[in-house]
């Protein structure tokens, strides 16, 4: 099922959600040859990269729920300079295009990281993680349409590469945010990111479980939320949508496509099954063929 997305010709519509598949760690676990021979996704989306290195949140970082997972990882990464020097040349040998996800604490910082990433020919597209507060304004960049538009107007001119805006579901009206992204020149939007979640200690003390205090819920538990939000966004914007949230089977991917997505990202299911992406792509293809 070949598909065209922001000028990229992809073998099928299944990609990974940012931060749910580390191709370099997978090479260590499964071997480079085996991974590359059966790479499960039609494009590879990197973990979020920031201007300066981040260690991530203290453990515990995970909490299992009914058919879901709360994570509070804290975006650990080596910083954009080391990422471009060490990791990008290795990602460039993957058999699929590389999409780099970036984040910044201000519009200025996001523009700086985007420009650095945009200079690299190995990177096919850039995904902007806007699910964070703007330390300059105190507003959640991705949650407030005017704030999102202002930040994107600062970032858009620094690169000619396709810009995908990863929308947060933790907002009053995700479709308004998508419209703001489109107005400011985004080439695509991706959604949904995780739903904000706070697990407590199981001992009844009321204390928080996660080292980072709060996290984000993913997995089958949020699948119907993803369908609602992708459908709402598709009614309001013309740019392509990467839909995600709880996809476990080809049927789930087909559902997201049917409400308006062009690509579908698989995340949490890859934790349960390392080649889930390839299985879902095959199931989707069989559905499309009327099997």
């Amino acid at each position: 099922m070949p598909v065209s997305f922001c000028g990229l010709a992809l073998d099928h519509p299944i990609v990974n959600g940012s931060g749910t598949f580390d191709a370099l760690a997978a090479e260590r676990a499964f071997g480079r040859t085996a991974l590359h021979a059966a790479f499960p996704f039609s494009a590879y989306v990197s973990k979020t990269i920031t201007l300066v290195p981040r260690p991530g949140n203290p453990p515990p970082r995970l909490w299992e729920t009914a058919t879901g997972l709360v994570n509070s990882i804290g975006l650990p990464n080596k910083g954009v300079e080391a990422y471009l020097a060490d990791d990008v040349p290795r990602y460039a040998t993957l058999p699929v295009p590389l999409i780099t996800n970036v984040m910044g604490a201000t519009g200025e910082e996001l523009a700086e990281v985007t420009a650095a990433v945009g200079d690299r020919p190995e990177i096919a597209a850039i995904e902007l993680n806007v699910s964070c507060p703007n330390v300059a304004t105190g507003l959640d960049i991705g949650a407030v349409p005017a704030e999102l538009e202002a930040v994107l107007r600062r970032v858009r001119p620094v690169t000619a590469k396709p810009l995908i805006v990863k929308l947060t579901p933790n907002t009053a009206d995700v479709a308004l945010c998508a419209q703001a992204a489109e107005a400011a020149g985004a080439d695509a939007v991706s959604l949904i990111n995780t739903l904000r979640a706070v697990p407590l200690q199981p001992d009844g003390s009321g204390a928080r479980w996660l080292g980072g205090r709060q996290g984000g819920l993913s997995g089958p538990a949020i699948r119907v939320v993803a369908l609602a939000q992708v459908a709402a966004v598709a009614e309001r914007v013309g740019i392509p949508i990467v839909g995600m949230g709880g996809v476990q089977h080809g049927r789930h991917a087909a559902d997201l496509l049917s409400v308006g997505a062009t690509l579908v990202a698989v995340g949490t299911e890859s934790f349960r099954d390392p080649i889930a992406g390839a299985r879902i792509a095959a199931e989707l293809s069989a559905l499309a063929a009327g099997a």
């Binding site: 931060g19 749910t20 598949f21 580390d22 370099l24 760690a25 997978a26 260590r28 676990a29 499964f30 973990k47 260690p55 991530g56 203290p58 453990p59 970082r61 995970l62 997972l69 994570n71 990882i73 650990p76 949490t268 890859s270 934790f271 349960r272 390392p274």
Partner: peptide, 20 residues
């Protein structure tokens, strides 16, 4: 841990020299 193969970054332990 959620995955076992380095994907989720959930299973970290702190290191003596900082980081995880």
């Amino acid at each position: 841990m959620a995955c076992g193969y380095g994907a989720c970054f959930g299973c970290v332990v702190p290191l003596k020299d900082g980081g995880y």
